[in-house]
C-alpha cells in the first residue's frame, strides 16, 4: 500500500512521517509517534476517549485520518505537564477522585482543556452539556464535573 508523507508538530516535537492514507490519526499518534496516552475506546467517534486538540480545536482522533493532520499542531494528554508539575485540571482530577480506571481520563482532560481555553467562563450548564460528549464507565461523572469546575478556577488563577 502506497504511503503518503505526513508532517506535523505533536506535543512540541516535529514529526516527519510516511503513513498509509487509511491510518487513523489516533493510530498514527500511538503507533507511529509512540504517544500512547490517547486511548481508543470505540474507534467510531462516540466515546470520546481519543479526544485531542488539533490546531486549537478539540477533535476525536479516531474520526480523522492521519493525512488530515498535515501541517497541524497537535496536543495530547502528554503535553499537559511534560514531566513537570501537574496541569491545574490534572490536579483537580486527582483531588476530586474524577478517575478510577483512568482509561477515559486523557479524553476528558483534553476535552476540558480545549473547552476552557476557548471559554474560561463556561457555566455549569454549558459544562454539563459539553462533557456529555465523552463516556466514562467508572465514576458516574459527578466527580468529573466537580473536577472540571474546580480546574476551571485553577486555570484562571494560574493565569493571574
Amino acid at each position: 500500500m502506497s504511503k503518503t508523507p505526513l508532517h506535523f508538530t505533536l506535543n512540541g516535537r516535529a514529526f516527519d512521517l510516511e503513513v498509509e492514507p487509511r491510518r487513523t490519526l489516533i493510530d498514527v499518534i500511538r503507533d507511529d509517534c509512540g504517544f500512547t496516552g490517547t486511548h481508543a475506546g470505540c474507534e467510531h467517534g462516540v466515546c470520546g476517549a481519543c479526544t485531542i486538540i488539533v490546531n486549537g480545536e478539540t477533535v476525536r482522533s479516531c474520526l480523522m485520518f492521519g493525512f488530515q493532520a498535515e501541517g497541524a499542531t497537535i496536543r495530547t494528554v502528554e503535553s499537559l505537564s511534560q514531566g513537570g508539575p501537574l496541569h491545574p485540571l490534572q490536579e483537580a482530577f486527582v483531588e476530586h477522585h474524577a478517575l478510577q480506571c483512568g482509561f477515559c481520563t486523557p479524553g476528558f482532560l483534553m476535552l476540558a482543556v480545549g473547552l476552557l481555553e476557548e471559554n474560561p467562563d463556561m457555566d455549569e450548564a454549558a459544562m454539563r452539556d459539553a462533557l456529555s460528549s465523552n463516556l466514562c464507565r467508572c465514576t458516574g461523572y459527578e466527580n468529573i464535573l466537580k473536577a472540571v469546575k474546580d480546574g476551571a478556577q485553577r486555570m484562571k488563577a494560574s493565569h493571574d
Binding site: G48, T51, T58, V59, L63, L111, G114, A130, S133
Partner: peptide
C-alpha cells in the same frame, strides 16, 4: 452531536 464532532 457534540462539540468535538462539530469542530470537524
Amino acid at each position: 452531536a457534540h462539540h468535538p464532532i462539530r469542530t470537524r
